[in-house]
């Protein structure tokens, strides 16, 4: 009886009985808890004194709450040779990630616009090569990139890192925008041409205003990738290492006692921006991906 009622009222394609339903929810909740476990461990242990961790249970709630590990991770912990905390490196990361994301997204949008609406001889080849760049492993470009950065005088600096990430990201952003703009009617571009709008005016007034969903995709993708990148940061960061490299230094330090609570706090700090971006823009991400793939 219950199943027939639910079958008639639920708009899911499959009708299920109450028992099955409870079972499914139970399993889902268990999985969710399991996935949340690492975050729980990190959060809980980042607010305990070190003694409680070494002497007790990782899973237990703290007896003495303290924010000291957070303060230490942020501004006083030993990173490499100096006790600066993650703060300066966090700043490096922001100085690197914001321009890199902005530039690679704008260039990707322009590329997508040109490759779909201002087609030229050999454009499919150009696009093919850009697509190919998405599949080149990081390790392969390390040495040539080091050489190029050296020649440009950008080695070991934030601008150098920005350049690396822009170059590496353009393949992806171009792919996103090209597929999105391919579904955009060319007659609109022609109408705008007759109306007297030029190359940039058409881009700015006609195309960009409808590019919201795909811009969100591009920004999230680029932000998380660049923020989380470790290899390029370590290789080309020099004195301006990003937060990922600093976190590694903090956790891997071989001198003194391992301050697990500080490590946990530092790890959460380093992950906060990506978490923030996902929570704010996550649902647009899926929407944008669908828009691009379905229409294109």
């Amino acid at each position: 009886m219950a199943s027939s009622v639910s079958g008639a009222t639920q708009d899911s394609a499959v009708s299920t009985g109450n028992v099955t339903r409870v079972f499914i929810y139970l399993v889902l909740i268990l999985f969710a808890l399991f996935y949340l476990l690492p975050l729980y461990v990190m959060a809980v242990n980042s607010v305990k004194p070190l003694a409680e961790i070494t002497g007790g249970n990782m899973m237990a709630l703290p007896r003495d709450w303290t924010l000291e590990p957070w303060g230490a991770a942020w501004s006083t912990a030993q990173i490499g040779v100096s006790p600066t905390g993650l703060k300066p490196y966090f700043l490096n990361s922001i100085l690197m990630v914001v321009p890199a994301v902005a530039i690679s997204t704008v260039v990707g949008a322009l590329n997508g616009y040109i490759l779909t609406k201002w087609r030229f001889r050999g454009d499919t080849w150009v696009f093919g090569l850009m697509l190919f760049s998405c599949f080149i492993p990081f390790q392969i470009v390390l040495i040539p990139m080091a050489r190029v950065l050296g020649l440009l005088g950008l080695a070991g600096s934030v601008p150098g890192l920005i350049l690396v990430h822009v170059v590496y990201g353009i393949g992806f952003t171009t792919l996103y925008f090209r597929n999105y703009y391919a579904a955009f009617p060319t007659e609109l571009i022609r109408a705008a041409q007759i109306d007297g709008a030029g190359f940039f005016r058409i881009f700015w007034r006609i195309l960009l205003p409808v590019s919201g969903p795909i811009a969100v995709v591009s920004v999230i993708w680029q932000f998380t990738n660049i923020w989380n990148d470790f290899l390029f940061g370590v290789s080309f960061g020099g004195t301006s290492q990003p937060v990922t490299a600093a976190l590694n230094n903090l956790v891997q330090s071989s001198t003194g006692v391992k301050e697990y609570n500080v490590h946990f706090a530092g790890a959460i700090l380093a992950a906060l921006p990506t978490l923030f971006v996902y929570i704010v823009a996550g649902r647009y991400f899926v929407r944008g991906l669908m828009a691009g793939s379905v229409k294109g």
């Binding site: 022609r190 007759i194 109306d195 409808v210």
Partner: peptide, 20 residues
């Protein structure tokens, strides 16, 4: 001569109205 400098106007099959 560029389309905008021919002093013509065109109505397209899909109307081509700017959606934004």
């Amino acid at each position: 001569v560029h389309p905008s400098k021919r002093n013509i106007a065109m109505v397209f099959q899909s109307y081509a109205l700017y959606p934004n």
